[in-house]
């Protein structure tokens, strides 16, 4: 449904690039949702997978001469490979995990942008894919990206895997004694989340077609994704999507020319969220819904008019 929304928006809204970026961020916010909302691991270095995806697509197009659509598979593959390399990080908890993932992403950036590797990665000089540029095809890829990432979250909300992940987040030891293979389930969520960011990075690379390493490893990409997800409410289906659409919309309205304004706004937003609304907008809807229902007493209107927007148990 949101994917269809973007297709419709494309017909009316002149700035296609903004729409593509919004879709990329929607996928990233849902990727954060998968790893943080369902397992409790908060990767501050999430952008590492995005960058890996962008380079996965770019290098496969440049060296293997595959069509960019196939390059998206290499984007996913590259991100999954980085995630597999970082399996040991899952032994860490909380703060250690968050900061170690940040360090890993920075390290990956330093390696890829290193002048010593310029022969392979083009080092700090960036990537040029103009020959593969195709605005319409990459727009379709972005729409598919949204559909798939929404699909993954819907699957997690309804499947045994999702239930197992919520159990692990609740208490890993008890989950083990409910017979859940905690390490394996976490690993699946980690790879899934990495694959989503990789696909997002690949889509971005394809649509933009020229970029510097600093642009696809920019730590503010992780920050945006985390803020969008938290704003809407992690653990829900619609929260992160809502967060990405609303906040990225605000960003486009106020932020592009003066990004500091937006940074200030979302910084304040994070502080307020943590202090006053730790469950995100979703939890607000959930908290207000019963009251609203009591006020209205009209079946079929009230919160039912907002399908799926609910807290962790909604």
């Amino acid at each position: 449904m949101p994917a269809a929304g973007f297709v419709v928006a494309n017909a009316f809204y002149p700035n296609q690039q903004e729409l593509v970026m919004m879709m990329v961020y929607l996928a990233l916010a849902q990727g954060i949702n998968v790893i943080y909302g369902f397992t409790g691991y908060l990767p501050f270095g999430y952008v590492g997978f995005f960058g890996a995806g962008a380079y996965g697509l770019a290098l496969s197009v440049l060296y293997l001469h595959v069509p960019a659509g196939v390059g998206l598979l290499f984007a996913v593959l590259a991100a999954v490979a980085v995630a597999a390399l970082l399996f040991p990080l899952l032994r860490l908890e909380g703060v250690y995990f968050a900061i170690a993932s940040l360090a890993a992403a920075e390290a990956l950036y330093e390696v890829i942008s290193n002048p010593s590797l310029a022969a392979v990665t083009k080092g700090p000089y960036g990537i040029n894919l103009v020959s593969a540029y195709n605005a319409n095809a990459s727009f379709v890829a972005a729409v598919a990206l949204v559909a798939v990432s929404m699909g993954i979250v819907v699957y997690l909300r309804t499947s045994r895997l999702g239930l197992a992940l919520r159990a692990i987040r609740s208490d890993a030891v008890s989950a083990e004694f409910a017979g859940i293979n905690v390490v394996q389930r976490r690993t699946v969520a980690w790879l899934l989340s990495a694959a989503m960011a990789g696909a997002a990075g690949g889509t971005f690379a394809w649509y933009t077609s020229t970029f510097y390493p600093g642009a696809v490893f920019d730590s503010s990409i992780s920050i945006f994704a985390i803020v969008f997800a938290l704003f809407g409410g992690v653990g829900t289906t619609w929260g992160p999507a809502l967060g990405a659409v609303v906040l990225f919309g605000v960003y486009n309205a106020v932020g592009i020319s003066q990004p500091q304004y937006f940074q200030l706004i979302y910084g304040v937003l994070i502080v307020l969220l943590v202090l006053f609304l730790p469950g995100g907008l979703g939890s607000l809807v959930q908290r207000l819904a019963p009251r609203w229902r009591r006020l209205r007493r009209t079946p079929g209107r009230g919160p039912e008019a907002l399908p799926g927007v609910g807290g962790p148990d909604g």
Partner: peptide, 28 residues
């Protein structure tokens, strides 16, 4: 307020992350 949060450790991390963004924006 932090002490009352469900997961104070993660929430304090996110909180100071937000504060860091505010400081950076103000400095800019």
């Amino acid at each position: 307020r932090l002490a009352r949060a469900q997961d104070p450790e993660m929430m304090s991390l996110v909180l100071f992350f937000g504060i860091s963004q505010v400081i950076e924006a103000i400095a800019a």
